[in-house]
Write a protein that binds this DNA or RNA. Sequence first.
DNA 1: GTGAAAGCGCTAACAA
DNA 2: TTGTTAGCGCTTTCAC
Lengths: 359, 359
Amino acid sequence: MSDPSFAPRPTLEDIAARAGVSRATASRVVNGSEGVRAPLAERVRQAVDELGYVPNQAARALVTRRNDAIAVVVAEPETRFFADPFFAQQVRGISRELTAHDNQLVLLLTEGAADYQRVGRYLAGGHVDGALIFSLHDDDTLPALARRAGVPTVIGGRPAWSDSETLYVDCDNRGGARDAVHHLLGLGRRRIGHIAGPLDQTASVDRLDGFRDVLPDADPELIVMGDFTPDGGARAMAQLLDHCPDVDGVFAASDVMASGALRLLRQRGLRVPEDVAVVGFDDIVSVAEWTDPPLTTIRQDIEEMGRMMARLLLRRIDPPEAGAALAPSTGAVLAGSEDASVPLSPIVTRTKLVVRASA
Amino acid sequence: MSDPSFAPRPTLEDIAARAGVSRATASRVVNGSEGVRAPLAERVRQAVDELGYVPNQAARALVTRRNDAIAVVVAEPETRFFADPFFAQQVRGISRELTAHDNQLVLLLTEGAADYQRVGRYLAGGHVDGALIFSLHDDDTLPALARRAGVPTVIGGRPAWSDSETLYVDCDNRGGARDAVHHLLGLGRRRIGHIAGPLDQTASVDRLDGFRDVLPDADPELIVMGDFTPDGGARAMAQLLDHCPDVDGVFAASDVMASGALRLLRQRGLRVPEDVAVVGFDDIVSVAEWTDPPLTTIRQDIEEMGRMMARLLLRRIDPPEAGAALAPSTGAVLAGSEDASVPLSPIVTRTKLVVRASA
DNA sequence: GTGAAAGCGCTAACAA
DNA sequence: TTGTTAGCGCTTTCAC
């Protein structure tokens, strides 16, 4: 009736004994150190195979202070996390990059502030070498918590505060927004509205700023608030139409809101892009390609951003050998997507206009 | 230029020194042991607060052999994992249950067999106390790998093999399928077809078996294969119609396939449920409620299944104190959803017919 | 009730 | 090149 399986795992000592060497030598072989004579090494390797030895990570971590594991913490209810293709793509990028560097991805889900304590303990407990944090709202305490836990951290998206310590990866929201508006302008549109996202997220603010960069004198009524949902986009579009019936172009701060806007325009019998041209932001393919008409939008390479986050964190955790002092590393860096080595500073990735049918 | 932050975390020794007690006593207080006099305990607690002490998990794990962390391993490309609301719900259930028991959920994503080695090392490395595994295909090696790693495991869905060691949680696929068919029969349908899922998954097989339980003499042409995608469902439906134009009821092995079938029926100008009644399986709300017409289906409580998996694993990891020998625990158990304590055996949850408009 | 001491499995000086 | 030794930070007998 009692536990039959789960025999105790062999230890390094067992390996050493079996191979007839010292624990130190066994350790060297297991960790691929140079300077162990071939025949000895061979015997150790054989012992490892025969006994199915796998190093005990707790013991190893205790001395090396390394886990080869990175936490991804998401400050969002799981529902949103799983529902949002944005996260999925980003996590995929992270996962791929970590895997390539033999690091394990540990996904920590939080469901409200109650979980933060637990996450804090987990981070401070030394389970992981670093953390990748997604916290969408400016007042979120997760970054502070990670900081207190003493864990190197990279944040997804530009945080609201700014200091020279904080590392983040974001896309060029402001530049992308400018491109969107310029595109509408290029189409001859002269009454261009903006459906903004919640302004407690820097991405929304930056996109709004980009809009204003190009249209500094825009009628205030042309700027309406949405909430990153389709319904919010529809409501915002309705408001826009009610206040400015002559609007002929709209830049929505997200594809999802743009899809809501398109729906409303259709309901009101307006043609897109003939009557009103619409540009979104994100290029969430499953949204932008399925709208009617397909959405012209600003693409951000989400998976690549995930990759960058991982790369940046790994570099932060163990800075490359000296000589790297060459790289200039002040302020955010506009990164091309093929950079193999990242500087130890915030990274801002380029965006790209993707023209489909809506504008 | 060099690492400025990340001061070393305080150790138990620091706490002990500060509180003027021995390490042992400090440890007792931290772990909530009885038998430490109040004033001492208070001093220790204060030191903990002041220094912001958090136990080093590696050190603790090294001696206790416990991590209070559970891995969830998904043998699916991440794309599918994130896209599928099924997983999301299940993970939510797991997450909630683990959190309630102060365990940390560690999500391990795999993207093909190459990742299996890494996962195997992670499991064998003693990072986690147990593993919850989802492997959808019969020939998947993940369960074997976990077994070799010596980690207690619970599997999501009935595995293809069977032995008394293996613990799993599944819904009553066969019984649910019978209910679906009986419902169609009750509606007066007499030519009932079945769109089956891939037969390398036990869920598909079980649902097919349930269909046959009720209709043992069904025309073989009434059984067609799908692949759990909408398109597959549509193709299967087309095939069914071509071979058996008089079909008046369909039981699809998943909501997603049912949605494809509905689409095809509409294309062919057939009315649902008047001409053909359709029943699905799963009750993925975001699918079943949005189809046209809304889908009658067999509901499985996915989140509850996730909860059960966690509960079962936790119980497997540390069996409750003696005296629990009372509980009979042979064979799979049909569980009501409110069971607080689970037996140490496979669990099969009930399904429920949800009648909407399609049948 | 409290402290001293041993040891979990491993790596990394340091010696040989 | 290899072995010896000393911990990493914690829990847990076992004396006191």
